[in-house]
Amino acid sequence: MSKEILTTQDLHLYYGEKEALKGINLNFEAKGITALIGPSGCGKSTYLRTLNRMNDLIPNVTITGTIKFKGQNLYAPSADTVQIRKEIGMVFQQPNPFPFSIYDNVIYGLRIAGEKNKEKLDAVVEKSLRQAAVWDEVKDHLHESALALSGGQQQRVCIARVLAVSPEIILLDEPTSALDPVSSSQIETTLLNLRHDYTIITVTHNLQQASRIADRTAFFMNGELVEVDQTKNIFMNPAEKQTEDYISGRFG
């Protein structure tokens, strides 16, 4: 059994007076894919964003409880959010390439960090795009605008951009909900390949996607973690009736 890389203990999050997360206890071992599912407004995306401090940007948010990445408190006053977001990367619902070339998109993080070695940058671009399973499609157009790519290709370039800074954890917030089934399937294949090397946590509304790719599935409802288990158990024999009702489409 591999060691836990990320732990959350009694995590509460308030938007002003409203309690959006009501004491989440959820841990992640290194490597593999965990899917977070639940009806809209259940807190799954809010939870995902706490894992690399994206909620810091929202005014009036209060967070209590503990999130530890490799034993270090993410919300300690000394924590460096730039470093955190390098180690815990995020891919969003809408593909959001920068209005630069594909090449410049991928090396964006490294360039910010001051890397200038052309050979090294070239190597990272190829490696990241290969890992994101988009290299063959874009290798002859690296210096063309990333905005000219299809949605599915843009999303894989965004994944490559996250991979380029060598994260340990990749967070994805509904990464395929803006994509057609073929592009979605390519992203799923990409994630399945990446799960051997990275800890992947993905929010999805697509239950079949969770059942296809996730090793573990966590079901959220009303700001609470109802159940987390091996995906097979969640989809075949969940312990909680709420889980069963949600995934068999009785509500939500």
């Binding site: 079949q208 059942s211 989809f235 075949m236 069963e244 995934i247």
Partner: peptide
């Protein structure tokens, strides 16, 4: 319908 759990 791609049933799961008790439906399946």
């Amino acid at each position: 319908y791609q049933p799961v759990t008790t439906d399946l």
